[in-house]
């Protein structure tokens, strides 16, 4: 129950546009301070989080004196938070920074490590109506390298078809154990009310929304239109969850930044990850 609330919270924010710049620089002065400060790529988010580059973006290599330097990390980590986010408590942020930049047991982000996911809203024409669904993706190793793969689809239209029905009714949705003696003449019940059809399936049944998406697209019932703003979910720091969004705005707090930060239990982490990677 607790995890579904967490998911709900996360989902509520899923469709909120990232905070695009309110207004613009009144003049371009040629001052590039903001551009240097901006976390311009997700790649830079990783490098800054781990202190693997200098302030001009030149990368450090293992063996360089400042590579993953702890003191510098704390400065960078502080910069990597969206300062306008209502979802980040100052005390939690400090606790998080102290945790990941702990001298004895530092935590680094790993691009090739598991437990981080991309989420992007995608617009489709679904039976001639514009609909937005969420695509979840993860990096997967293959042969000599890596690729992004779709791990799950979240589409309320699909979900509604598999919603939890009336509990009392659900209880009566089964084919009794002697049905075979009657040549399963009661089979019609399974399909008579499709709302409950899946309850006649074995208990391991789990709807795979990716199959539905691909099927509908193949059938021509769904047509890809466009993408919305991208975000990332990170579970690489034990006991913590954070979300990263792109903030396209002037000032020195822009680019890819942590916009949400939560402390989570192992169980919550497991449940959340199952949502992105069923």
């Amino acid at each position: 129950m607790k995890y579904s609330i967490t998911i709900l919270i996360l989902l509520c924010c899923a469709f909120i546009m990232p905070a695009f710049g309110q207004g613009s620089l009144s003049s371009i002065t040629g001052d590039e301070t903001d551009l240097y400060a901006q976390t311009k790529q997700v790649n830079q988010f990783f490098r800054r989080f781990n202190n693997e580059e200098d302030r001009y973006g030149n990368r450090y290599y293992p063996g360089d004196s400042l590579y993953r330097d702890n003191a510098f990390r704390k400065v960078y980590l502080e910069m990597l938070f969206d300062k306008e986010s209502p979802f980040i408590q100052k005390s939690q942020k400090e606790e998080f920074i102290n945790h990941v930049a702990d001298v004895d047991n530092p935590v680094f982000l790993d691009f090739h490590g598991d437990n981080w996911f991309a989420e992007v809203p995608a617009t489709f024409m679904y039976y001639k109506k514009k609909e937005t669904l969420l695509l979840f993706l993860q990096l997967e190793q293959e042969n000599l390298g890596y690729k992004w793969v779709i791990t799950n689809v979240y589409f309320d239209k699909f979900l509604k078809k598999f919603n939890k029905g009336d509990k009392e009714l659900v209880k009566s949705k089964f084919l009794h154990p002697m049905s075979h003696e009657l040549d399963f003449m009661n089979m019609y019940k399974v399909f008579q009310d499709p709302t409950y059809s899946e309850y006649y399936a074995s208990k391991t049944f789990k709807p795979d929304y990716r199959t539905l998406l691909f099927y509908e697209v193949k059938m021509g019932n769904m047509e890809y239109q466009n993408l919305g703003p991208l975000k990332f979910h990170f579970f690489q720091v034990d006991g913590w969850y954070f979300e990263v969004n792109f903030f396209n705005r002037p000032g020195n707090n822009s680019g890819w930044l942590i916009s949400k930060l939560y402390k989570i239990s192992d169980k919550e982490k497991e449940d959340l990850i199952r949502f992105y990677l069923p």
Partner: peptide
């Protein structure tokens, strides 16, 4: 063009590129 140029890591894709 602004002077700033940011270069990411080079990652390998499945075909080795």
């Amino acid at each position: 063009w602004y002077k700033i140029e940011y270069v990411s890591d080079l990652e390998r894709q499945p075909d080795g590129t």
